[in-house]
Design a protein around this nucleic acid. Structure first.
Length: 431
RNA sequence: GUGGUUGUAGUUCAGUUGGUUAGAACGCCUGAUUGUGGUUCAGGAGGUCGCCGGUUCGAGUCCGGUCUUCCACCCCA
């Protein structure tokens, strides 16, 4: 929890730096909003919410209803699957209130009815940043900068930003005569890291791609070299494809202002709504999948009746980033400390005094905890120890009488009698 | 959705071919130390062996069902 909050702080700070504002949308969406947006597999993974009330009342009359129809009959709502579609809905519904181009970030949990496994959860936080209402490649550039800025702050440095353009993929499928298998092609080429070239060959044969095209595709996949040499290669490769050249042109324009990314023509991304630039951030020495990913989508709002609105967004996978930070020991120690000082009192008569003292310290901005029941000093000190509280103030009869309190440093064990003001000064100087 | 895996103390796990009273480590509690923690030492509490049923003189152990955990695939952050 502490760790997640630390991440949120880093994210929010950087989002604000780049001029994004926060919005939130409800956990639940109507089924029509969710269904059909994430591909066939995606539909299966949407959590459905049963209608409230006696939702089976009218079902009895429909004896021949198919299980599929029954499903949509008794469940009209679902839990959100990602943050982008609800955002598109939000933009369409509030188009009178927002000014284009519109920028926002959103940090909320999403749910997927998947079998959990390593790095995959049924509920996880997504952290999305989107631009909407502009086709400018400034967005692409800004988002890449934002990623660097966040990962630098988190001290993660072994990662790579992979970038591609869906139009190039579309051009390839056009050129190699399997445009009708485009979706399948995206899925297959995207997992080439996992299955390798031979696996890809096998799967493509299995899915009946034209044999001649497989060979040509391999040459493209095994392409090495820097970004501009890669660009030159595909430029000739796709010289007959209008859409392909368009994609290349977009990347070239981007490279004029931003170049710290790796072109990777095997990057495809699963979600079907992307139409142009796509990118993913992958850790170099860890195989838990991508840490964040996103891309440009034209007309995502069209399904909600708002046309010709292009948007681009990126989504950070919080849980996976936590894993990376954990395995590399990159969380700062400071986040483990809850309170700077614990007030420990020795008899119930001293509760009132202790509470007063606690509030005085809190007024000065010093995080203060108070042991919530009378207990032996030993126990209270142990509590401070286990909770990483660096200072303890001990209050007994003598202290109250003299107006001086025992301040104990838990690290070196030193302690001395100080007045309230002296304690405040000391604590403030440490912070 | 497909294939596998797991379940025993608060936690992580042992538990032999079915056999008397189910163990360890850590954590927790008490004391050594009436108002001084981390270390040490002595003692103590904690379990319907996931749940239901079956085989057996006898089941944590074998069988069936069910739920759960984790992993891989599909897919994805």
């Amino acid at each position: 929890m502490k760790k997640r909050e630390y991440l949120f702080e880093v994210f929010k700070y950087n989002f604000n730096l780049y001029g994004f504002n926060c919005i939130e949308t409800p956990s639940m969406e109507n089924s029509e909003v969710l269904n059909g947006k994430y591909g066939e597999e995606g539909d299966r993974l949407i959590y459905r919410i049963l209608n409230s009330g006696d939702f089976l009342k009218n079902i009895n009359n429909k004896k021949n209803i198919s299980s599929n129809n029954l499903k949509s009959e008794i469940s009209k709502k679902g839990l959100r699957y990602d943050l982008t579609i609800p955002f598109a809905r939000y933009v369409s519904m509030n188009r009178d209130k927002i000014t284009m181009p519109f920028k926002r970030y959103q940090i909320q949990p999403v749910w997927r009815a998947d079998r959990p496994q390593k790095g995959r959860f049924r509920e996880f936080y997504q952290c999305d940043v989107d631009y909407i209402g502009t086709k400018s490649i400034v967005c692409e550039s800004e988002i890449i900068s934002l990623v660097y800025s966040i990962f630098k702050k988190l001290k993660i440095d072994d990662f790579e930003i992979k970038l591609n353009n869906r139009k190039i993929l579309l051009g390839i499928s056009e050129e190699l005569n399997f445009k009708n298998k485009f979706e399948k092609f995206c899925v297959l080429i995207d997992k080439i890291d996992k299955i390798g070239v031979s696996g890809l060959k096998k799967e493509m044969k299995l899915s009946k791609f034209p044999t001649s095209s497989i060979k040509k595709l391999i040459s493209l996949i095994e392409l090495k070299g820097n970004n501009s040499s890669k660009i030159n290669y595909v430029k000739t490769f796709l010289s007959n494809s209008k859409i392909g050249l368009e994609g290349i042109n977009e990347i070239e324009n981007l490279m004029k202002i931003k170049s710290d990314f790796t072109l990777d023509f095997t990057l495809a991304r699963g979600l079907s709504y992307y139409t142009s630039t796509i990118f993913e951030v992958v850790p170099i020495n860890n195989n838990i999948g991508s840490l964040c990913g996103g891309g440009r989508y034209d007309d995502l709002t069209e399904i909600f009746g708002y046309k010709n609105i292009s948007g681009i967004g990126i989504s950070f996978g919080i849980e996976r980033i936590i894993e990376i930070l954990n395995t590399n020991n990159l969380f700062p120690e400071k986040i483990e400390i809850n309170n700077n000082v614990l007030i420990s009192y020795l008899s119930n008569d001293l509760i009132k005094n202790s509470l007063e003292l606690a509030n005085k310290l809190r007024e000065k901005g010093i995080p203060t905890d108070l042991y919530s029941e009378k207990a032996k000093l030993k126990k209270q000190l142990q509590y401070a120890n286990n909770n990483n509280i660096p200072f303890v103030i001990i209050i007994g009869e003598d202290e109250i009488k003299n107006g001086k309190y025992m301040l104990k440093n838990m690290k070196d064990g030193n302690q001395n009698l100080l007045t309230i003001n002296e304690i405040i000064n000391k604590m403030s100087s440490i912070k």
